[in-house]
């Protein structure tokens, strides 16, 4: 058994797998249009990698034995799910395989799929904030794509007929305000900004007053990237959050943590500490169009119950999409 799987693993290079998947996809493309197939195409790289491994394992084993579980474990670790989450997933799988007396790896595949789906469930009301008066605070460490995410979101909300305003509360990084300005112009939404190095809390305060006065639907606040272990910067973020709570209690507070999908296990730590600072309501998983597996989202959902609400699958302005766990896991495994 081991021989077989190893040979398989070595012979099927990434390239071959990719062509295989592309063939599959071309066939499907014609049949399935719209969001679902778009997601599949966007996620194709992710799929190759995450399930390239998992599929490999599922295909190269006939019987469910120790070896099989070990290989499956490895494949999931390679997808950045993290050791703890993987151990938990595999443990659950073992128990259920025994309970349901499953004997084929094909059945295990369905089971695993359902396990991951149930882990990644997003509440139905996750996007209700779009139809309310909302202050949307975007937070995260440096370089994950906060400003770009805001640019894309503002465009989408605007197109959906909402009035949108941006607050340039990243007053620290060089030219961050200018970067947001470009996005504001692209989507044609107003921007509230002060000079560089001004107090971000003051910017948010101003923006809230302005949003209230103009009866703006969604106010999106950009913040400076900060590493979660810097106490003073996290305190600053907490202050911004408190200002929003105090100055606009009537508004829905949506706090999106932006995570780079190439990030490894540290993302869990990021989510934990940011959560202590502001009440995170969702996660944005960016840069999923690379070869990164984004499996860390599964770890975060499982450990911290933070739902992924949007995923970024490209540089285009509408390459930021709402996240759907069913579609996501289905797309990751296969479609047929």
């Amino acid at each position: 058994m081991k021989e077989k799987s190893q040979i398989n693993g070595e012979l099927q290079t990434n390239e071959e797998l990719q062509t295989n998947n592309e063939l599959h996809m071309n066939k499907n493309e014609d049949k399935k249009k719209g969001f679902f197939s778009k997601l599949v195409i966007g996620l194709s790289k992710t799929r190759d990698n995450l399930i390239g491994g998992v599929e490999n394992v599922l295909n190269s084993f006939i019987t469910i034995d120790e070896e099989f579980y070990e290989e499956l474990e490895e494949a999931l670790i390679m997808a950045d799910l993290g050791v703890n989450t993987v151990l938990k997933v595999i443990e659950d799988l073992r128990v259920k395989v025994k309970e349901q007396k499953l004997t084929s790896t094909e059945e295990v595949r369905e089971l695993l799929k359902n396990e991951l789906k149930s882990l990644m469930l997003v509440n139905e009301d996750a996007y209700d904030f779009v139809d309310q008066k909302t202050v949307l605070l975007v937070i995260g460490v440096n370089g994950v794509g906060k400003t770009t995410t805001i640019g894309k979101l503002s465009n989408q909300y605007k197109l959906a007929g909402k009035t949108v305003m941006l607050a340039a509360a990243d007053t620290f990084r060089a030219a961050a305000i200018d970067q947001l300005k470009v996005w504001a112009n692209r989507s044609g939404v107003p921007l509230i900004a002060q000079s560089e190095n001004s107090d971000p809390g003051a910017v948010v305060y101003d923006a809230i007053q302005s949003a209230k006065a103009k009866n703006t639907d969604i106010l999106i606040c950009d913040t400076a990237g900060r590493l979660h272990n810097k106490k003073n910067l996290m305190d600053e973020l907490h202050k911004i959050y408190r200002i929003i709570e105090r100055e606009y209690p009537a508004a829905h507070k949506e706090v999106l943590l932006v995570l780079d999908s190439t990030t490894g296990q540290n993302a869990v730590q990021q989510a934990k500490l940011f959560k202590e600072t502001a009440d995170i309501t969702g996660v944005v998983l960016t840069k999923l169009d690379g070869t990164a597996k984004g499996g860390i989202a599964i770890a975060i959902q499982s450990e911290l119950k933070l739902p992924v609400k949007y995923i970024g699958v490209g540089e285009g302005i509408d390459d930021l999409r709402p996240f759907d766990s069913n579609d996501f896991i289905d797309a990751l495994f296969n479609i047929t």
């Binding site: 997808a79 190439t262 990030t263 490894g264 296990q265 070869t291 990164a292 597996k293 860390i296």
Partner: peptide
Amino acid sequence: VDSMTGQDAVNV
């Protein structure tokens, strides 16, 4: 390279 990169670091 971002030091927080996960398993994908090798591919990159």
